[in-house]
Design a binder for these strands. Structure first.
Length: 548
RNA sequence: AGCGAGGUAGGGUAGCCUGGAGUACCCGCCGGGCUCAUAACCCGGAGAUCGGUGGUCCAAAAAGAAAUUCUUGGAAAUCCACCCCUCGCUACCA
């Protein structure tokens, strides 16, 4: 039994996540965590809303509300949505909390004391009307490259080029819209990543073998090879944690710092004592799920904070980096109306369908594409036809031929169950989630094959007059029931609702465990079988079609 | 531009780290079987110059004291180099 912390990258509390965000980190983390629980591991699953940063501050200023209010509202929305998708976090927290501030400060203070934080001066745009520095998207204007009026302080939304605020033509303040801007000298603090290069390289070489994707290892090593540079740790803004150092009253700790540290802060918010048992325990495995745009924060910056602070926090054991999910061949984009968002998706189909279909298309090693056609395939032919229909065949046959149903079957003694279960646990052990889902589908296929080969409905007829046929029929029924039960268990990480429905036929009401597969089962013949899944209806197809 | 990852039947993927006949998998297509089940299921078939080019490697024969060179025949989806295409990162997006 291992002690494990599973984390998912923190969603930014600015808007509702879309399907691509979901499948990139929270969903696979939840699937894996559910498996660990079934396996009896001592695991916790932490995630939460990332609440600081300029997008939220600017939106709040424009709306005339406190950033904390806005960020908490969105936090609630996201939290509720994940609950509706049956994500079973140990704790879903947020970053703007006292606990997380304490964590951020202890990192900051120790890094400062250990000599990893240095001061530097630079020029920043300043609005003389609003009396504030204009970081990132607080400054807007015309792009020097494409000459469209869509440039923000950090990037042009039209041509996607990265910009320096000083390059922008005709800059104006995003709050008051005026151009009364001067560049003022200001000082900021930076984290001297360069001083930790050697230790980081050793760490990555040591841990990179634990299920880190090729991309994550190579990208990180290549960045270190090029040479790390100091990275800003404070920003001239008003939203975020105060910098715990005099002379920095007008700055805040830069959002990335308390976002990665948020994993610990959120655990502390969950339990003010137990968090240490996980984070400051050298035997803990820290397994982190994230999208490829987020890798370097988890493989360079975050380990650098842990190593440099010498606070004894556990370093990432596994980095499960996902690639990107596209939508009908295009990038998800709110402004271009490409994609489906988590709230919209539930108005089309229940959570189980999204969980399964998304994991079926999980961009595990390469970008993948979400298409409505592919979704319909997964729902209709895999979930409904292969899995749901199989379970229905077995349960109906059993109900119609009660005298052939034997109780007390041990699912694992059925060789096909044993074989697919081994694939399933091996796949989860190596965090190969698409292989794990393939093992579930494979088991249903085995079941369907038995049906065709043994034709139990004919055996059942023959059994009425022939004792030998009756014996054979009982054996076949036992195999089919064992497989059905195992499907109920193995589906749990992917489709918890269907798992519950199926296991209810076996009088299992608690959260399933893998141990159930080596115990005796009891089929409840009084319970009427109802289809586990259904195909997309014309109405559902119509709703989907709107997302073109 | 630099760095990283991906490119495999009509579509979607596994295989690559550790070279050995494209026995792969799912959808779709064609043919057959079955009638327990949700018009579902099962079996068979067609369909791929594995993005491109060049290497690496092996064997035989020849020249040389030897390293090696050359000729012929051969194992690369997998290893290497370069090129093309897609995506990501490049430190002020989080």
């Amino acid at each position: 039994m291992a002690r494990v912390i599973v984390t998912s990258a923190l969603p930014y509390a600015y808007s509702v996540p879309h399907l691509g965000n979901f499948v990139g980190s929270v969903l696979p983390a939840d699937v894996y965590y559910k498996y660990l629980r079934m396996n009896g591991d001592d695991a916790i699953f932490v995630c939460g809303s990332d609440q600081h940063g300029t997008p939220i501050e600017l939106a709040a200023v424009k709306k005339g509300v406190e950033p904390a209010v806005l960020a908490d509202e969105m936090h609630q929305t996201i939290k509720t949505l994940f609950e509706r998708y049956e994500c079973t976090f140990t704790y879903y927290g947020k970053t703007h909390t006292e606990e997380n501030k304490e964590v951020a400060y202890s990192f900051f203070n120790e890094l400062y004391n250990n000599g990893y934080i240095s001061e530097h001066e630079d020029m920043q745009a300043y609005c003389n009307i609003d009396k504030r520095f204009l970081t990132d998207r607080f400054i807007q204007g015309t792009c020097p490259y494409c000459h469209k009026k869509s440039a923000r302080g950090d990037q042009c939304d039209s041509c996607n080029r990265l910009l320096e605020p000083s390059q922008i033509i005709d800059p104006f303040c995003a709050i008051c819209g005026k151009s009364d801007i001067t560049f003022k000298k200001t000082k900021n603090l930076a984290f001297d990543l360069n001083k930790l290069q050697d230790e980081l390289r050793d760490f990555i070489k040591r841990n990179g073998k634990y299920n880190w994707s090729r991309d994550a290892v190579n990208k990180s090593l290549s960045m270190i090879k090029e040479g790390l540079r100091p990275r800003d740790i404070t920003r001239n803004m008003n939203w975020g944690f105060q910098v715990p150092l005099s002379g920095y009253e007008n700055s805040r700790i830069y959002v990335w710092f308390d976002a990665v540290g948020g994993y610990i802060g959120i655990t502390k918010e969950w339990d003010s004592r137990k968090w240490r048992d996980y984070w400051q325990n050298e035997h803990t495995q820290l397994v982190q799920f994230l999208g490829k745009d987020n890798t370097l924060f988890h493989t360079i910056i975050w380990p650098a904070m842990i190593i440099g602070s010498k606070l004894g926090f556990v370093l990432p054991h596994t980095i499960k980096e996902s690639q990107f999910l596209n939508f009908e061949g295009k990038k998800f984009s709110k402004s271009n109306k490409v994609g489906i968002w988590l709230d919209e998706a539930l108005r089309i189909m229940p959570a189980d369908y999204w969980r399964f279909a998304l994991m079926y298309a999980y961009p595990e090693t390469a970008d993948s594409d979400f298409t409505r056609r592919g979704f319909a395939d997964a729902v209709d032919t895999i979930m409904n036809d292969k899995i749901g229909n199989f379970a229905q065949r077995v349960l109906k046959l059993a109900a119609a031929n009660r005298q052939l149903v034997e109780q007390g079957i041990v699912p694992e003694s059925e060789k096909r169950v044993k074989a697919e279960l081994e694939k399933y646990t091996a796949a989860f052990g190596k965090l190969q989630l698409k292989k794990a889902i393939a093992a579930v589908v494979g088991l249903a296929e085995q079941g369907n094959r038995i049906m065709s080969e043994k034709e139990p409905w004919l055996l059942a007829k023959a059994a009425k007059t022939d004792a030998k046929a009756a014996g054979e029929a009982k054996d076949v029924f036992s195999s089919l029931i064992a497989i059905t039960f195992a499907l109920g268990v193995m589906l749990y990480p992917f489709t918890p609702e269907a798992s519950r429905k199926l296991l209810a036929h076996f009088k299992v009401v608690a959260e399933p465990t893998l141990a159930l597969l080596s115990g005796a089962t009891e089929l409840d013949l009084e319970r009427e079988p109802k289809p586990l899944f259904s195909k997309l209806t014309a109405d559902e197809m119509e709703k989907l079609r709107k997302y073109a």
